Each structure stands twice: as structure tokens, then as C-alpha cells.
Computed example of a mutant assay.
Amino acid sequence: MTAPDVSAQPTGFACEETAGPDVVTGSGPGDTTSGPAAILGFNHAYYVNRSVEHARRFLTSDSAITTGDRLQTGIDAVPADTRHCVSISPLNTSDESARWAVTVAEFRPSTKPWIARQTVTTRTVDGATLISEITLA
């Protein structure tokens, strides 16, 4: 998997949008049409919209991420002008669920970029692909 380029700082920030069979990168709004699209959507809701309600649209109803205040606490801990870039590669996929290797690069103002490596599980529910689990890799 190719990690996002962390040499750039928020000033002049650019996150290249790519969509290939082996890697998807970007920071766009996403949707629920695929695993990578749901992962992009969740991160966009987290970093750009800063909205728990918006982020939950990308989560299954039984996801542990939807319970409690952890999600809001995480959003509140990130400065509002933080930029992000996500890189997603398939680990394994099936008709109903898939696991993805995800790298999220955070570009906070006045600090060095921070990288989070995650394994994200998505599942298709009633025609929508949603995130059921996020674990640190």
C-alpha cells in the first residue's frame, strides 16, 4: 500500500485523488457505493464536516464506533483546520464484507504530519456499503 505523501504541510495542502484496483487515495466526501467510498466518506465527515451524525451515516448500526461519546471526543480533539489524506488498499473482499488496509495522514497546523494505520472492515447492508469496524493496525 502506498502511504499518502506527508512531506506537504497544510499550507499548499494537496491530497491526490486516485482510484485504482490496488489503491484508492483522497479526502473527498465519499458515499456508500463501495468500501473505499465509505471509508473516504467517514473520514471526510470526521475531519471536514466534524459531525458525528454525518460520520454515523457511514457506519453499520451494530458498529462499536457508534456507541458512546468516543467518536465526538475524537472529533473534538482534532483542530478544526486539520487536513487529511486517506490511502486504502484491499486486504480481502467478499460479496458481503471486506477488510481494508487504511492509512490516514493528518496534517495539523504547526506540527509534523501524523500517520494512523488501520484495518477497516466494511459490510454491505441493504445495498449500502458501511463500516462495521476500525482497528489500529
Rank of each mutant, 00 (worst) to 15 (best):
T66G: 08
T67S: 14
R70M: 09
R70C: 11
L71F: 04
L71R: 01
I75F: 02
D76E: 06
D76N: 03
A77R: 06
A77P: 04
V78R: 04
V78C: 03
V78F: 02
A80Q: 13
A80W: 04
A80F: 11
A80E: 14
T82N: 02
T82P: 05
R83C: 10
R83G: 07
H84K: 04
H84T: 08
C85Q: 05
C85V: 02
C85A: 04
V86G: 02
V86F: 04
S87W: 05
S87V: 11
I88F: 00
S89Y: 09
S89A: 14
L91N: 05
L91C: 09
T93E: 11
T93R: 04
T93F: 00
D95A: 14
E96V: 13
E96H: 10
S97K: 08
S97F: 10
A98N: 00
A98T: 00
A98P: 00
W100L: 05
A101F: 12
V102D: 04
V102R: 01
V102K: 01
V104C: 03
A105L: 05
A105H: 01
A105K: 01
E106H: 07
F107Y: 10
P109C: 14
P109K: 08
S110V: 11
S110W: 14
K112E: 15
P113C: 01
W114P: 00
W114G: 03
W114N: 06
I115Y: 08
Q118D: 10
V120R: 00
V120S: 06
V120N: 10
T121H: 06
R123M: 12
T124G: 09
T124P: 07
T124M: 09
V125P: 08
D126K: 09
D126R: 03
A128V: 06
A128E: 11
T129P: 07
T129Y: 06
